[in-house]
Design a binder for these strands. Structure first.
Lengths: 148, 148
DNA sequence: TCAAGATTTAGAATTATTCTAAATTGAGCC
DNA sequence: GGCTCAATTTAGAATAATTCTAAATCTTGA
């Protein structure tokens, strides 16, 4: 045993985070969170539903939306909207941005962001800035190779 | 008369831009573009439809989507997706970002962006970056005042 | 144990977007 | 000008995404 602080197991933080927003930890919310962490490919609500259903056959679509909303509310999941299609969900809460391939629609995490400070964005009086979302658009390696 | 270069009338550039992408200038596309420029409040396709319809009663929803797509394709309009709701459209092609009020959903143009250079984003090999989209989230002056 | 409130569920309802097939339009050519 | 071809528009149906509803279930705290 050493003195280094260890992270609490994810279930704990999950519970704490939910509780902090006045929400309960339920098996469904746990399952949805697990599904997201298992394969961080930015699935849509529908994909989350199908994956969760395979482990928990009784879960319903409405619950998936409810769980996703709960997880977003308490800051454990990010919503990612990049085009006209369905919203995607991302359980990576590290500061990062998303690269969206305009050709094939795939999404990649890019472990860099622009902080409000370095962006030195000056907003008109009265605005309260909470978060800067950076979306990178272009071609993923596969599509870039094909286009060449 | 003086020697200062004058901008070509918007219809011209509209036509040129469309032609450049192999698209035609039609009354409907012109109308949709006009609607967007008239009130730059980031309307949804549905709002554009209603506004266009008041001037051109025979226009259909499918045409509005077609026109919006055409204008986006030829670089005259930007698509703005900020949340789970309907996509919005922005005819301001100046470099700028969008401020989204998480409370009331209103959208403001912010005339600052982060260039790929100053962002010094380093992408993994193979990615081809075309555009950085910056979305600011927080509270608009009205909502900020209420929350206080 | 009970009551109150939160959560889940199925399915209906709504909203957003795309598709389809027929009609219309416009550009280039004779 | 009339003809042909392809692009565009149209109404409406179809699909996809999300939200709503009301009843059932679960959890928590008195």
């Amino acid at each position: 045993m050493n003195a280094v602080a260890t992270k609490p197991p994810p279930e704990n933080s999950l519970n704490e985070r939910l509780a902090h927003s006045g929400l309960r930890l339920t098996p469904q919310r746990q399952q949805v969170h697990e599904v997201l962490r298992e394969k961080m490919d930015h699935p849509t609500a529908d994909q989350v539903f199908m994956r969760a259903k395979s482990k928990m056959p009784e879960i319903s679509m409405a619950t998936v939306y409810n769980c996703l909303d709960a997880l977003v509310t308490c800051g454990l999941v990010r919503q990612v909207t990049l085009d006209r299609g369905a919203t995607r969900y991302c359980p990576n809460m590290q500061d990062h941005s998303h690269f969206y391939c305009d050709e094939c629609g795939s999404v990649y995490d890019i472990l860099q962001t622009i902080s409000p400070e370095e962006a030195h964005i000056k907003l008109p009086r009265g605005f309260r800035l909470k978060l800067i979302e950076t979306n990178l658009h272009g071609l993923c390696p596969d599509c870039a190779a094909k286009t060449k």
